[in-house]
Amino acid sequence: MARITYMQAINDALAQEMERDETVVVFGEDNVGGTGSPGEMDAWGGVMGVTKGLYGKFPNQIFDTPISESAFIGAAAGAACSGLRPVAELMFVDFMGVCFDQIFNQAAKFKYMFGGKAKTPMVIRTMYGAGIRAASQHSQALYPLFTHIPGLKVVVPSTPYDAKGLMIASIRDDDPVIFFENKVLYAVEGEVPDEAYAIPLGEAEIVREGDDVTIVAIGRMVSMAEQAAADLSSDGIEVEIVDPRTLSPLDTDTIYESVENTGRLVVVDEANPRCSMASDIASLVAQNCFEHLKAAPQMVTAPHAPPPFSPSLEDLYVPDPEKVADAVRKTVGQGVAS
């Protein structure tokens, strides 16, 4: 057990899986060090350095690709069908549009189109989220585009412990997995076992127990909910925080069970509000837990607007603990701080 960052946890998971299984291959733009560079331990290791140091240990299992997303994501899908376990990095999820056919029409459909006989064990790693002043083409939280598509699994870890265990589970899974890494969380530290371990996909974590209001929070929003929870607790409101960890498949049992106990739901989601995980979870709860609800489900999300470049507007754009606390107070009939 050691205290390491979210970024190091992902690097550890990749290293341990490449070590365990030589069919695990890692590639993407600058994953080694940029084409033509010597590609040693001091190379780039991806745009933020997540794969740094891996080339020195596994020179035959990690390589760079050209800036041609359709080509290398398609290559990942093909490699997965023919016996490898590729982990392809597509830098920012905002760029995913250029290779969508490879993902939702090919990789997601192989199992279905080939009568269940094809396995597609591939992982696409990608960064999401606002907060690093990277403007609207590098800051979106586009996971709902993928949860909409049957055949894809969608993972959004919120802690270093979860990042490692979910990455290992994603690599070992036989379906295509889109693995969302929040760039603001890369520097966050937490206790992570040195050994390899897998967290089952489709299992939510109860981050905090409470009887008054259920908060379902995704990715970086878990920490916003935790900060709000501390504030609310001093006012006598005890929230329960559920982190789904995997958005597809979604652990609805854990969410329903929590709402059946509290009777109140707040969903905190960094994505835009329409056709989102927040609206999906609110609607599932409304349909399935209606008789337990004591108040209308609330959503705390980004506005229906692109992430702004202006730092002060970007700070307003992302849900914060105060907005979460206000939504919780609304569900218990308390006045909202204004």
Binding site: P193, E195, Y197, A198, I206
Partner: peptide, 16 residues
């Protein structure tokens, strides 16, 4: 309590 259960689950999920 929750933490005790979580710790045992974390142990059980280690490879091997």
């Amino acid at each position: 309590n929750r933490q005790l259960v979580n710790d045992v689950i974390k142990f059980k999920r280690l490879d091997g």
